[in-house]
C-alpha cells in the first residue's frame, strides 16, 4: 500500500470500440462496478491511439491505458500492434523525464469480457495506487 492511503488515482482509459468499449458496456449490463475516477474515451480502433493522447492524458491523470482487441484479432489487422508500439514510445518519453513508465499500459480483451474489463481496470487502478500520484501532473 502506498504511504497515502487516501489517494484515489485518476485513470484515463482509451477503449477500442470493437472490444474494450463493448466490454465496458457488458460490464454495465452485468452491473459490475469499478473505481469512480476512471474516465473512458472511445476510439474507432486501438491503432488510433497516439503518443500525444497518452501524454495529454498524463497531464491530468495518474495513469492511462489503451484497451485493444485480442492479438491477431484486430478488425483493422494491425491496430493493436500499432497501439503496442505507441505504448513503448510513451514509456520512453516518460522515462526521459523521470516519470514511471508503468503509468501507461496496453491490455487485450474481447467485446464479451465484462468481467475481464473490470479486472483490468481494478488491477491497473491498484497498481497506480501503489505507485502514488503522478509527479508530473500539470492539471492537479
Amino acid at each position: 500500500m502506498s504511504a497515502n492511503a487516501d489517494f484515489q488515482p485518476k485513470i484515463i482509459v482509451f477503449a477500442c470500440e470493437n472490444s474494450g468499449w463493448l466490454a465496458a458496456e457488458h460490464a454495465a449490463e452485468l452491473a459490475l462496478s469499478y473505481p469512480e475516477r476512471v474516465e473512458l474515451i472511445k476510439l474507432p480502433c486501438s491503432g488510433k491511439i497516439d503518443v500525444l493522447f497518452f501524454m495529454k492524458a498524463l497531464e491530468k491523470a495518474d495513469g492511462t491505458i489503451v484497451l485493444a482487441c485480442q492479438k491477431e484479432n484486430c478488425k483493422f489487422i494491425k491496430g493493436n500492434i500499432r497501439a503496442a508500439q505507441r505504448v513503448k514510445q510513451t514509456e520512453n518519453l516518460l522515462k526521459e523525464i523521470g516519470i514511471e513508465p508503468e503509468r501507461v499500459g496496453l491490455y487485450y480483451l474481447a467485446a464479451n469480457m465484462g468481467h475481464k474489463f473490470v479486472e483490468i481496470i481494478q488491477n491497473f487502478y491498484d497498481k497506480i495506487r501503489e505507485l502514488g500520484p503522478n509527479p508530473g501532473k500539470v492539471i492537479k
Binding site: V51, L52, E59, L93, I97, G98, I99, G136, K137, V138
Partner: peptide, 14 residues
C-alpha cells in the same frame, strides 16, 4: 510540438 510541450510541462511540474 504537442508531445514535446507535454514532456516539458510534466518535467517542470515534477
Amino acid at each position: 510540438v504537442g508531445i514535446l510541450s507535454s514532456q516539458l510541462t510534466m518535467a517542470r511540474s515534477k
